[in-house]
Simulated assay, not measured.
Amino acid sequence: MRQIFFDTETTGLQAEGGDRIIEIGCVEMINRQLTGNNLHLYINPQRASHEDALRVHGLTEAFLSDKPLFAQIAEQLLGFLAGAELVIHNAPFDIGFVNAELKRLRKPPITDVVGSVRDTLLMARDMFPGKANSLDALCRRLEVDNSNRKLHGALLDAELLAEVYIRLTRGQDSLVMDDAGEAGSDSNEFRVAALDLRGFDLPVPQASADELAAHEKVLLELDKASGGKRIWKAPEQISA
């Protein structure tokens, strides 16, 4: 199965309000193996980013001024994504922005091009209800190294998402290849020999006289408080 881990950076939060895509990161995985066939694009949005967005991604208007317009990279992007399953963290956000860009070019929505869309935020909410499930939070919880994530970047975030997805789906522990060239192979599994516990003489500690007296005192207090309705009685009391 071909999957594309997909992320965007944008000038702001409102696709329908005129905010634009400025960066796209796509990381390809086939049958749960990274291929290295990735796509990374910077895009000139022809407008400035909001201050809050700029603090997140750090991509200035000057840096993006000589980058291609979305119209110039649209066919390259659609060709790369065609037929794949898109894996996105908070998919409605990125899909909304891509569809807004495609609408400007009078093209059909991205869901007409890709095979399907999987939202890892929904997956994480099902697995960890009531907990923080941002990409950073999942990296911490699933022990994915995101120490290089000083600013948000579409390609880096897509790479982190691929590692998070593998751990969320429990198919293997990591995307790192072992010496045999196959991730998650049996050769790397840690095996423990079975033990016959019948050969162990386990000690059985006995209560001291003081402990038994204290226990009996508690039982008598319970008996008094319940009006003689205490259920748990000593064997000699039951036989009597």
Rank of each mutant, 00 (worst) to 15 (best):
L151H: 14
R170V: 04
R149I: 05
V114F: 08
K217H: 11
P235R: 07
E85H: 04
M1G: 11
A62K: 11
M177A: 08
E23R: 10
N31M: 03
V204T: 15
S187L: 08
A91D: 05
L122G: 08
F128K: 02
S239V: 15
K107C: 01
Q33N: 09
L34Q: 02
A183W: 00
V27G: 07
L212N: 13
G228L: 06
R118F: 09
S116N: 09
S174H: 00
K150D: 13
D112W: 08
T8P: 13
A132P: 14
G25L: 11
N31D: 15
T60S: 15
A62R: 10
G115N: 09
D126R: 15
E159W: 00
L64S: 12
N188R: 11
A137I: 00
E143R: 14
E28W: 00
G96I: 04
N37F: 04
D201L: 14
S174D: 09
D136F: 02
G130P: 07
L212T: 14
G25N: 10
R198T: 15
D186M: 04
V144P: 13
E51W: 07
L156E: 03
E61D: 15
Q172E: 03
V192I: 14
F63L: 15
I4T: 13
V113Y: 13
K217F: 01
S226H: 05
E9W: 04
S134K: 06
E216Y: 00
F80N: 14
T169Q: 06
R149C: 07
S208P: 02
E51R: 11
T35N: 04
D173N: 12
R104W: 00
L78E: 09
P129L: 03
L197F: 11
I21L: 02
L102Y: 03
A240F: 02
C139G: 08
S65M: 06
G79D: 14
